[in-house]
Simulated scan of single mutants.
Amino acid sequence: MNRPDAVETVRTLIEDRYPQAVQALLGGSAAAERLTETSDLDVTVLLPDTTVCRQALTYAGWPIELFVHTEESVRRFVQLDAAKRQPSMARLVARSIPVLPGDGGAVLRAYCSALLEEGPAPLSEDEMQLARYILTDLLDDLDGGASRPAMDAVVVEVWRRAAELLLASERRWSGSGKWLVREIEALDAAAGSRFATRFHGSLEAAVNGRPDNLVRLVDEILGRVGGRLRDGFRLVAASGE
């Protein structure tokens, strides 16, 4: 890649546009040393006071995404993400490279790292039953003989929800897109399992009209939490819903 060094590029950008910054944190692919020709630079800018925003720009040949925050707003977004079991902001901050001199943002990075290490709260009984019920219903849809485009959509939804349930049952964080796969890979690395490979292979087979392996994998995951659930499912709406 004929582009200047990522860290130096971000440092120059921040000194030019945000001279009051407490710290700038270079995360994402750059921090993980996974940069490719199409990678952008994900940068969290910490300011004493600001209007929180996300903005995209190109600087010195690099596509850059800026996440402009105060430390307080980062903590707020981290907690919102944690409630969804998808710690995007915590990952971005904890697994980052400080670009500016000094220890600005160090406490915040430690806070995000601790949250990632702790893992998500366990699913409540209602959440677990709902997850089992939805997957049971989706598995029924796989036998429903719908059109091929509709069946492919069902396959993808089965794959996603089964992956999320697996991670939740293991008290591990989830994610969307590539981060869902990466979290399963992290589970495999920790547990010596091979779920990522099995999920990928069964998804490929299912979208080509062979869902049997996917169904077996999903039933295995459901078996960890009580199996399929249809008869007897009951979910009481919260007050006001």
Rank of each mutant, 00 (worst) to 15 (best):
M1P: 12
N2Q: 09
R17K: 13
Y18L: 02
Q20P: 00
Q20E: 15
A21V: 01
V22G: 02
A32N: 03
L35A: 11
L35G: 12
L35Y: 04
L35V: 11
L35T: 10
D40R: 00
L41S: 01
L41I: 01
V43P: 03
T44R: 05
L46V: 01
L47M: 13
T51D: 14
V52T: 15
R54K: 15
A56M: 10
A56D: 09
L57W: 09
W62I: 02
W62R: 11
E65D: 14
E71G: 13
E71L: 11
L80E: 13
A82R: 04
R85W: 05
Q86F: 13
Q86N: 14
Q86E: 14
L92N: 06
V99E: 05
P101C: 07
A106E: 15
A106P: 08
V107F: 11
Y111N: 07
L115R: 14
L116C: 08
E117R: 14
P120L: 09
A121W: 02
L123K: 07
D126H: 02
Y133M: 07
T136R: 01
D137W: 04
L139R: 07
D141E: 12
M151I: 04
V154C: 15
V156H: 13
E157P: 04
E157G: 05
V158G: 10
R161L: 12
A162T: 14
A163G: 15
E164Q: 11
E164S: 02
L165N: 04
L165G: 08
L166K: 06
E170G: 04
E170Y: 03
K178R: 12
L180V: 05
L180G: 03
L180C: 08
L180F: 08
E183I: 02
A189C: 02
A190Y: 01
S193E: 08
S193A: 14
R194C: 13
R194D: 15
F195A: 10
A196N: 08
A196T: 04
T197D: 15
G201S: 12
S202T: 15
L203E: 10
V207C: 12
N208E: 15
G209Y: 06
R210F: 11
N213Y: 04
N213C: 00
L214H: 09
G223S: 08
V225L: 06
G226K: 03
G227P: 09
R228P: 07
R228S: 07
D231E: 15
F233H: 09
R234Q: 00
L235T: 00
S239Q: 15
E241G: 11
